[in-house]
Design a binder for these strands. Sequence first.
DNA 1: CGTTAGCTTGAATGCTTTCAATTATTGTGG
DNA 2: CCACAATAATTGAAAGCATTCAAGCTAACG
Lengths: 262, 262
Amino acid sequence: MPNGDAPSFEWADEHAGRMGYGPLSILIRKLLNHSLLSTSDQQAIAGLPHIVKRAETGDSILREGDRADICPVLLSGFVYRQKVASDGGRQIVALKMPGDALDFQSIFLPTADHDVRALTPATLALVPLKAIEQLTIASAGIARAVLVDILIESSIGREWLLNIGRRNALARLAHLLCELHDRVNEIASARSGNFRVPLTQEQLADLLGLTPVHINRMLRQLEQMGAIGRPSRSLTILNFPKLAQISSFSSTYLHRNNPSGV
Amino acid sequence: MPNGDAPSFEWADEHAGRMGYGPLSILIRKLLNHSLLSTSDQQAIAGLPHIVKRAETGDSILREGDRADICPVLLSGFVYRQKVASDGGRQIVALKMPGDALDFQSIFLPTADHDVRALTPATLALVPLKAIEQLTIASAGIARAVLVDILIESSIGREWLLNIGRRNALARLAHLLCELHDRVNEIASARSGNFRVPLTQEQLADLLGLTPVHINRMLRQLEQMGAIGRPSRSLTILNFPKLAQISSFSSTYLHRNNPSGV
DNA sequence: CGTTAGCTTGAATGCTTTCAATTATTGTGG
DNA sequence: CCACAATAATTGAAAGCATTCAAGCTAACG
């Protein structure tokens, strides 16, 4: 049982229920970031049957090999996908933000190929896959929005491959922080500086294909450059432009267009 | 102009026109590997308007920043996706095989986030995106098949992240070769050993986040272990089990299920 | 038959890891 | 409220895997 002290990164809660759409309104908001949805589409999503559930840090939400029949939607908190190598080495292969659906994939691919775990305390809406599948069949607009979501995650994955494969440790770390900065600003109303990154050094290492020790040294370097701050045991972005310069960051791969601009 | 000597890896040609479905029959076969398609769905795909075009090794098929209105389908040969870092470093982020559609993404995301280039001489069927989009709207079965294709590519991308992020050079290389072996056997009728890999050492390096020099040394090591052969300037897989053992390869991430087994 | 792209090799360098030990922070229980 | 345990962060030194640099070689192509 968690005590009542919610950690940061619960912005989703600010919006829960807004627009009269209930918990799933955050999913609608997220989809509207890149896709157009008719009022009836939005109502259909809001009306999806679901159970709200709480997950604590580290909890497993989906396991490799599972055959899921529900699709969790992240209402608040952060979550990651991971794969584990035979020698025990772990690689985090995706980070998901509030409003993201975590397992559209299981609609079509029966067995999960990776784990999903809570990065921070999180709240989830568990939606039956059947219900989502029916919605995508009933509405081309919703099908489209779901697909765009999947395509953007793929695009991010490709950028990560470039990041891990071709950048040195410092640039790699800076690049990840830039992406986090941009993605978080997408859901929270943007306040450019200062954002507390909810990742331990070990998690950063598993995200970037490095070791915790080396992450520590690179963080210190970024701190000395004034790019980040590290009050007590946390990590904040202080100078986004500097991070972007170090990593040659360009956000085009995030595909954040206003959908009207089609 | 190419001379008449087709390189290896033109298996697609063996099937062109088979089943009376014309050039796109290979796309249908590929989709049938993982999805069920009604006869009318298959006919609809075969009937897609298209232009057949030839691409030579290294030709650019799609460029980052492009706004494509056609989706190339790979009829024969191999193709890869790449991203380029600001320092010129290149990362190959996907390999595509005959029968694969190369740019479903542009239906929904207007600007390309990566390049697509020919790895070998290749033939393409250029299909108007509009036509594909209409098909996916008209047939839930086709929409599903297209989506599954995208999801499997994503799954492969996640495995690549694990491979590059967490395995050493030798295992990384062995793992890639195992994947190629399996994916090629999926389209050609499987003959387990002996398969000529159409990648230069430089391309292998760009695929695995390594340098050509180190690839060379790792190849020699694999050769000495009897896992691969290197007649003249080419590369063949001799001992798949050995490669699988070196890299702890498991093919589940390829999601090759018979679609009837749903 | 020369040219060229791709492959091979050795030596030196270096980025990152590994190992090992210490310090700091958070949370818990007395 | 303080002591204690547990997790996370920090640091230094040594080792190692992979890169870089530079040169020579080989196969393929025109």
